[in-house]
């Protein structure tokens, strides 16, 4: 058992170690990827924030992510209501359709969008990326929102109606507010999915609508630009904060109780 535990710890180290290496790299003075760094400074952070070739993709990615999130939940929420609450002929076929974008390899869709959006003249535009990312985000968003809906107690709606609320008021006063967290998480996943998506963005976003993953991909492949380590550290920092904050929240806020 101790042997297994030791092995598990080694695996954990293997998982976390490489993540941590990007942090010192971002403060390195080296012009190429060198470890351990020959010296430390903040120069590449300044360079990152001053360089529109880096900041613009960040802005693009956030904008595209938000638009994707909005569009995705607008499509997925009504679809989820139909899928969870109605029994109709063709339901399993529709279910498969909603999950398809998760099954098809992204590189295949990248090729499809490349020629299709060229034809529609929306290639290398944020609109094209939003449309593509929305399709790719539908499955994950659908899984989450449908699960939230399945967990929803229909007696709450019955109670609202019993207490005098009509169907529309029942939806706005009870169904929607109770499900709102589920909808938001479904939307958040769509945002993250879009923000992280690289393959389709590499092929269709172009220079003008370049997303951050595309910029990072090009930077690693072509330029070996040291600023990539700054971006990586910042992204890792955001994740670290997001993952740890519930824990800190629990320790700091709940302790007095």
């Amino acid at each position: 058992m101790n042997l297994v535990l030791a092995f598990a710890l080694v695996v954990a180290l293997f998982v976390v170690g490489p993540l941590l290496i990007v942090v010192p790299m971002s403060f390195s003075t080296a012009t190429s990827f060198e470890f351990p760094p020959p010296g430390y400074w903040l120069g590449y952070y300044r360079a990152f924030f001053a360089d529109a070739r880096w900041t613009q993709p960040v802005i693009n990615s956030i904008g595209i992510g938000l638009a994707t999130m909005l569009l995705t939940i607008l499509l997925v929420i009504p679809a989820s209501f139909a899928m969870v609450r109605q029994r109709f002929f063709g339901r399993s076929a529709v279910n498969l359709m909603l999950m398809m974008p998760m099954i098809v390899p992204h590189i295949v869709m990248a090729l499809g969008y490349y020629s299709y959006f060229s034809h529609l003249k929306i290639i290398h535009s944020p609109l094209g990326v939003v449309l593509a990312h929305t399709c790719l985000s539908v499955p994950v968003s659908y899984l989450i929102i449908a699960a939230a809906l399945k967990g929803f107690d229909r007696n709450l709606e019955r109670a609202a109606m019993n207490l005098g609320a009509g169907p529309l008021r029942t939806f706005w006063e009870v169904t929607f507010p109770v499900l709102r967290p589920g909808f938001l998480i479904g939307g958040l996943f769509a945002f993250i999915h879009s923000f992280d998506e690289a393959v389709v963005a590499i092929f269709i976003s172009g220079q003008a609508a370049s997303t951050l993953p595309r910029k990072m991909f090009d930077s690693i492949r072509i330029e070996a630009d040291p600023i990539i380590s700054v971006v990586s550290t910042l992204l890792f920092g955001v994740v670290l904060l997001a993952v740890i904050s519930p824990l800190i929240w629990r320790v700091v806020v709940k302790r007095p109780v």
């Binding site: 019955r158 109606m161 019993n162 006063e173």
Partner: peptide, 27 residues
């Protein structure tokens, strides 16, 4: 149902989780 004026207590109470006790009763 919403025009019947019949009160009902559900098996699992079905209290609205996003409202306080007073808001539930005032609903």
């Amino acid at each position: 149902p919403h025009q019947r004026n019949i009160g009902m207590v559900f098996q699992n109470y079905a209290l609205f989780p996003h409202m306080t006790a007073a808001e539930n009763v005032g609903f």
